[in-house]
């Protein structure tokens, strides 16, 4: 426990450059292009007596980077999602996305959750186009330029391997296909930042690996920034450029780990020894973070 704390205080140092240097000196220069910056953020729910979800949380994600956040359950990963998208405003600290402080909902963000939550009364194509009916300038243009947007949505479906399924209703799709459609919906308005909250958690192992491929290729092609919240370590290591390990509640980042595997990464990578070494290393950190869990109060 004492060991962990000295370590975490090192990583919590306010100097972002020093923090990065502690992890990987070669990348230190890139700190200037941070797309998501979270510094010293504290958020508690339910007033003074409430639960502190995150405390002095500091992390930053570079533009175009694929970041993964892992941690024991209840470590405030979902709170991190809400903070970054402006759905909740922290009591303390500063959050900025694309250089601008976050003060309310952000439409340059796309979100996808474990539950695909597609609307059962809409065909898949209409489901995917839902964000276009809300985000400006698309909402105003949609009616007049319908064909253009339909073409865009169909291209998006093709990209995730759902070509030709636009006319089907969600219940006619398998779980994996629904999750693909969910990704399309999150990306249709071409957000600069994609936030994923355990999007593959409810899928079987084979489908999950397929979807890892889908998101890997999407990221490769479209170059958006991704923050993936997950508790699957193999998923985090396989997909991410950098993994953040969060402690138990109140959540804070206790470890950052650059994942240096070359891209594009074949799925076979996940069966190699070096891959497993990284997973194992992270796993130990999480075990320490869990042992640190304070009694619920």
């Amino acid at each position: 426990m004492t060991l962990l704390h000295t370590e975490s205080s090192l990583y919590q140092s306010n100097d972002a450059t020093a923090k990065l240097a502690a992890v990987d000196p070669s990348r230190a220069g890139q700190a200037a292009t941070d797309f998501v910056e979270i510094s010293d953020v504290t958020l508690s729910y339910g007033g003074d007596e409430g639960v502190t979800a995150v405390e002095d949380l500091t992390m930053s994600v570079r533009k175009g980077e694929f970041a993964a956040v892992v941690g024991p359950s209840g470590c405030g990963k979902s709170t991190l999602m809400k903070l970054t998208t402006g759905l909740v405003i922290p009591q303390k600290g500063r959050i900025a996305v694309d250089g601008k402080p976050v003060t309310g909902p952000l439409d340059i963000v796309g979100m996808a959750f474990q539950n695909p939550s597609l609307l059962p009364w809409r065909r898949t194509l209409d489901n995917i186009m839902l964000p276009l009916e809300i985000v400006s300038p698309h909402a105003q243009r949609l009616r007049k330029h319908k064909a253009e947007y339909v073409a865009r949505a169909e291209a998006m479906l093709d990209l995730v391997g759902l070509g030709g399924f636009g006319a089907n209703y969600p219940w006619q799709l398998s779980g994996g296909m629904q999750q693909r459609a969910n990704l399309c919906r999150a990306l249709i308005h071409e957000p600069g930042l994609l936030m994923l909250d355990e999007p593959f958690g409810a899928l079987d192992a084979f489908t999950r690996e397929e979807l890892w491929g889908v998101i890997r290729d999407l990221h490769q092609r479209k170059k958006f920034t991704v923050v993936l919240v997950t508790h699957d370590l193999r998923e985090a290591v396989y997909l991410a450029d950098r993994v953040f390990v969060m402690s138990a509640r109140p959540g804070r980042v206790v470890l950052e780990r650059e994942i240096g595997f070359e891209r594009p990464r074949p799925i076979d990578l996940t069966y190699t020894g070096e891959f497993n070494d990284v997973v194992h290393e992270l796993r130990e950190k999480i075990a320490e973070a869990r042992a640190d869990t304070p009694p619920i109060g």
Binding site: L87, L106, F113, N115
Partner: peptide, 12 residues
């Protein structure tokens, strides 16, 4: 679903 509401609210 609260998630769906989040998705929509995040879009503004």
């Amino acid at each position: 679903e609260p998630e769906l509401e989040d998705v929509l609210r995040a879009l503004g």
